[in-house]
């Protein structure tokens, strides 16, 4: 971790010893059988494993401190716990152990879940905006910008059609435009940059940079090392839920590229290797 310089650095997110565990019903021993279910009810506290509840330890003992003005990339192979960690920072997933302290309310960039395919694009703009906590006036003010940004109306009046009639690219563009319409203190972006065609990608990258300026701290999850290099000055590398490296973008990416490029594919998740935890 970088040392304190003469300017005081204000922390915006502090994670200390964070563990996140998912519990999945009806798997493992005696999958879904009646006796397993009965077991589960009767002996819930005693042995979750015997009762067919499987625990997935998605994030293990992760600690870091993020400061105002930083843009932090999160990298790691699929299933390494990046998105889970972001959700926990946003307060959307409860942590098993440890604590996460945040400045204000961090928000994930994304409104997909709030939108309804059977409604028109126009109503979805309002619904999504309200779901993110904007007021009706704010949405009305930005409505034109959102629609223009999405480019939905470039090929005709599509905003008044139900969203289920949109192509997947159009729907993705509208979703991004709605999500990016709000200003955030701590902003977390989960691979949102990869939507739409080339021209839309360029526009959305520009919009992300704008958001970065107004946001205190930005987290970016991506598998695209180039976009991490372009936007982030610090990188957290998660592997199997553990924080493997934390440091300046170049240092971490070099190690990461050696890790992913070296062997064809890292060992499957269940296999027990012991990665060295090196917190720079």
């Amino acid at each position: 971790m970088a040392e304190n310089l003469d300017t005081e650095r204000i922390p915006t997110v502090i994670a200390s010893g964070v563990d996140i565990v998912y519990r999945v019903n009806g798997t493992g021993a005696g999958r879904g059988s009646a006796t397993a279910a009965l077991n589960r009810i009767l002996r819930r506290e005693k042995s979750e494993r015997a009762a067919g509840v499987r625990k997935v330890h998605a994030v293990r003992n992760v600690s870091f401190t993020a400061y105002r003005g930083e843009a932090i990339g999160l990298i790691g192979t699929n299933g390494s716990g990046k998105s889970t960690l972001l959700k926990a920072v946003a307060g959307l997933l409860p942590v098993e152990n440890g604590k996460i302290y945040t400045d204000g309310q961090p928000s994930l960039l994304g409104v997909n879940a709030a939108l309804m395919n059977d409604l028109t694009g126009e109503r979805n703009v309002y619904l999504g905006g309200l779901a993110m906590g904007m007021s009706r006036e704010q949405i009305k003010e930005r409505y034109e910008d959102i629609v223009d940004f999405s480019g939905i109306n470039e090929k005709g009046d599509f905003i008044t059609l139900p969203m289920r009639t949109y192509s997947s690219g159009m729907a993705a563009r509208l979703r991004f435009s709605i999500a990016a319409a709000k200003d955030h203190d701590v902003l977390m972006i989960d691979e949102a940059l990869a939507t739409g065609d080339r021209s839309f990608q360029k526009r959305s990258e520009a919009r992300i940079r704008e958001l970065r300026k107004s946001a205190g701290t930005v987290f970016l999850v991506s598998h695209n090392n180039k976009s991490i290099r372009d936007t982030c000055d610090r990188v957290l590398w998660l592997e199997r839920g553990e924080l493997r490296m934390d440091g300046p973008t170049e240092d971490v990416l070099k190690e990461y590229e050696a890790f992913t490029g070296g062997s064809d594919k890292p060992a499957p998740k269940a296999a027990k290797a012991s990665p060295q935890v090196a917190v720079a």
């Binding site: 971790m1 922390p11 994670a15 200390s16 600690s63 926990a88 920072v89 945040t102 400045d103």
Partner: peptide, 21 residues
């Protein structure tokens, strides 16, 4: 460095709140 510092104290000093509380 920050992680070694007591996180609760650091959080309190800058007025951070527990996320999702």
């Amino acid at each position: 460095a920050a992680p070694a510092d007591d996180p609760a104290a650091l959080a309190a000093r800058y007025g951070l709140a527990v996320s999702g509380a």
